[in-house]
Design a protein around this nucleic acid. Structure first.
Lengths: 240, 240
DNA sequence: TAGAACACGTGATAC
DNA sequence: TGTATCACGTGTTCT
């Protein structure tokens, strides 16, 4: 976990950072042979100067390393910091995503067919959502948790009269954020009049109308903040 | 499709295949300097023989290339055969999978929230014509013309960046007001990103995220006002 | 000390 | 023509 960027720093990023800026200038000011930049005077079999090839190759290498770094950033499961390992982890992750998508789509299909077929006469419709709830995707067997923390962008708690407090919460739209928010608000045991969630362009907006008095406003705000902070903290004493 | 392995074959796979087996043997039988394998007799600053480094490095390169090839195999969308492009395509594909998975999971969440009765909140069974799979919420668009007029309490149209205009509309909650609002917004043929309606204590709040530029803001506001006014007027020229 | 991983410069090659 | 990309051998650094 915490040693993730430890050994990596020694022989990879430092070397990469050694390559930028002054290193480039150093290599360019002294382009491997002695002539500065213009046309090569010798005019041997190699017509164009070798320095161009050098800097071009250097740029290519840098681009490739940047891409590899970006790939590492998008893949959450990282075993080692190897170049080869990064690619391998990416492959595994893509296949895992494939399988997961297939599973989820199968569940959707099952849910939809079950919903349209069965009438709501009996009370047995309780077991299906329960089983769905248990199969959340925080099942990564190795280490890193898949649920992203809730990043609050804005939180407004205001009284609107008629014993109604409106909670307006905006946060980043990440994996499982919606479910986490619902669970957080459920854990607060509020008298919810109405609530809804809206997602748009990377943001997630939750509005909840709570039956409460005006003097409970600040207390409610603190409770929400505490609950979300506890949710984000891995070793939360409350947990769930 | 079929030109996929065309230019690729020229300067990539052929070179890779040149590297296997007999190429290894060639390099190993003649290990770059002349001495066969045992300890280096010269004993200079470089104590261990360079041939081991060569073959090791060669194996490392081969492994990395194999991994890259495998990555290319798992990613269906391939633009170019570049090493860097392969990685870039993989990154894009992973992000695409992320977004898709989030969409699907949102659909699951929506399905199960509409089904479970004792869940944390509300009955948000109204959904927008997102072309996710199929359109629900297709009620009879006319029939009895006896409907209460839409009484606007507040109408806010504001630009939120990223080509997103937010329409916030509050009105009195009367008979069929919800359906009317939906029909009005549907008739405007907007590029709706997300929308929702919330009802509480005699009010009805509709929020719509529309894909539009900032300069379309005022025009959009007028169109909404006009459409609602035309809806309320019995002898409207637009009607339905 | 042996080994693994890396960046570098260089010649080759395809477009 | 030049300009990409690539594999290769080498020296260096970290474990």
């Amino acid at each position: 976990m915490e040693d993730l960027g430890d050994e990596y720093k020694h022989y990879w990023e430092t070397n990469i950072f050694l390559q930028t800026e002054e290193f480039d200038r150093w290599a360019l000011d002294e382009p491997i042979s002695g002539y500065s930049d213009s046309s090569s005077p010798d005019g041997a079999k190699s017509s164009w100067p070798a320095s161009k090839n050098i800097v071009s190759e250097r740029n290519r290498r840098k681009k490739l390393n940047d891409r590899l770094l970006a790939l590492r950033a998008t893949v959450p499961k990282i075993s080692k910091m190897d170049k080869a390992s990064i690619i391998k982890d990416a492959i595994d992750y893509i296949q895992e995503l494939h399988e997961q998508e297939r599973r989820i789509q199968a569940e959707i299909w099952e849910l939809e067919s079950g919903k349209s077929k069965k009438s709501m006469d009996f009370e047995l419709d309780e077991e299906m959502p329960m089983r769905l709830k248990k199969k959340r995707m925080d099942d990564n067997e190795n280490g890193c948790r898949r649920t992203s923390p809730i990043e609050i962008l804005e939180l407004r708690v205001s009284y609107m009269g008629e014993r109604t407090v409106v909670v307006s919460l905006a946060c980043r739209k990440r994996t499982d954020t919606m479910v986490q928010l619902c669970e957080v608000f459920e854990s607060l045991k509020l008298k919810i009049i109405t609530a809804n969630i809206t997602a748009f362009s990377g943001r997630l907006l939750k509005t909840v109308f709570v039956e409460a008095d005006e003097e409970d406003k600040d207390d409610l705000r603190k409770k929400i903040e505490t609950a979300i902070a506890a949710r984000n903290d891995p070793e939360s004493p409350i947990s769930i």
